Amino acid sequence: MVTTLKSSIANPQRLPAPDGIALAIEQFGSGVPGVVFAHGFGQTRAAWTSCATACAAAGWANLTYDARGHGESDWLESGEYAVDQLSADLRCVCAFAGAPPVVVGASMGGLVGIAMAGSDAESCRALILVDITPRWEPAGVERILEFMRAHPFGFGSLEEAAAAIATYLPHRGARKSPERLRKLLIQSADGRLRWHWDPRMLEPIAEDGARHQADLLEAATRIRVPTLLISGAASDVVSEATINEFLELVPHARHAIVPQATHMVAGDENDQFTRHVLDFLASLEKI
């Protein structure tokens, strides 16, 4: 049963995953959801709000959700997270949508999208990958991991958190507002502000993801649904080599580049990113 959750982020529903973990999901638009958005590691469903709102306005009802260990979805008491759990959660949300949806997955969300689409052709109608390929650039991923490991004791204020993000993303002009930052942080019992994800999952998921790379490359060869890869021109996580390899593995896939964007494509250039998503969705209506 899906019940309503009181929330500081929005007003999500609670969807039980196969192992009983509750996932926080949010619907944009009315009717059967035609799109499911899966965020990257360390993000929450709030990363998709602008694009999800635009898709709903274009007639594509959609769902966003917090991955387990993130945002308002349950965190595992054991702390024993694995990539297979994340894949099962995506399947669960897609099944809840009521019909095979278009899956939009960024980074971690894209990897579980590749795994799902490659193992079950009926699980989704189409796939949009956001700056991720089955083989990634280790240096770019390590840069992200270094930032995520950098503040184990959290922050003393929103201003301190904003400064850390500005240092990590110097190409963005304005710092995040307090309102946007509050969606990324939770206040611990000691009063410190910490990221809205379980820090215990960082190393297990990073290691597990690396072990799954060969499986992801194999899964890509079995993707049969319409596929779009959107990459950031300034990304250090994907490269010309990894993109070309993916396009060889999935020869029917399209590729769109967002100028000026880094790995954080939707956050860097949301208008351009959303335009690519809407154009691809419009092309599906003709199929």
Score class of each variant (00 low, 15 high):
V2Y: 02
T3Q: 01
L5K: 01
L5E: 05
I9C: 00
A10S: 10
A10I: 10
N11Q: 15
A17Y: 12
D19A: 12
D19S: 13
G20I: 13
A24D: 08
A24C: 07
I25G: 02
I25C: 08
F28R: 06
F28E: 00
V32S: 01
G34M: 03
H39Q: 07
G42A: 04
G42I: 06
Q43A: 11
Q43R: 05
A46N: 06
A58W: 04
N62H: 05
T64G: 00
G69E: 11
E72V: 10
E72C: 09
W75L: 07
L76R: 02
L86Y: 14
L86H: 06
S87D: 07
S87A: 10
V93Y: 13
C94G: 02
A95W: 04
F96T: 10
V102M: 02
V103Q: 05
S107Q: 01
M108S: 03
G109W: 04
G110T: 02
L111P: 00
V112W: 02
G118Y: 07
E122K: 13
E122H: 12
S123G: 14
S123Q: 08
C124T: 01
D131I: 11
D131K: 05
I132Y: 02
I132K: 02
E137A: 12
V141W: 04
I144M: 13
I144E: 07
L145Y: 09
E146A: 13
F147W: 11
R149M: 04
A150N: 07
P152R: 02
F155P: 00
E159W: 03
A161W: 06
A162S: 15
A163C: 05
T167I: 15
L169V: 15
P170K: 13
H171K: 09
A174T: 11
K176E: 14
P178W: 08
P178M: 08
R180M: 08
L181Y: 01
L181F: 04
L181D: 09
K183Q: 12
K183V: 09
L185E: 04
L185D: 01
Q187T: 14
A189N: 06
D190M: 13
R200D: 06
M201E: 03
P204F: 03
P204Y: 01
I205E: 00
E207M: 14
D208L: 06
G209D: 01
H212W: 15
A214W: 08
D215R: 09
L216H: 02
L216T: 03
T221V: 08
T221P: 08
R222P: 01
R224D: 06
P226Q: 02
L228G: 10
L229N: 13
I230Y: 03
I230S: 10
G232H: 03
A234N: 15
D236G: 10
E240W: 12
N244C: 11
R254W: 13
R254N: 15
I257P: 06
V258Q: 07
V258T: 09
Q260N: 15
Q260Y: 15
Q260P: 07
A261N: 07
H263Q: 15
H263T: 14
H263E: 15
V265H: 12
G267C: 08
E269R: 13
N270P: 08
D271A: 08
D271C: 00
D271Y: 00
F273G: 06
F280W: 15
L284R: 09
L284C: 06
K286Y: 11
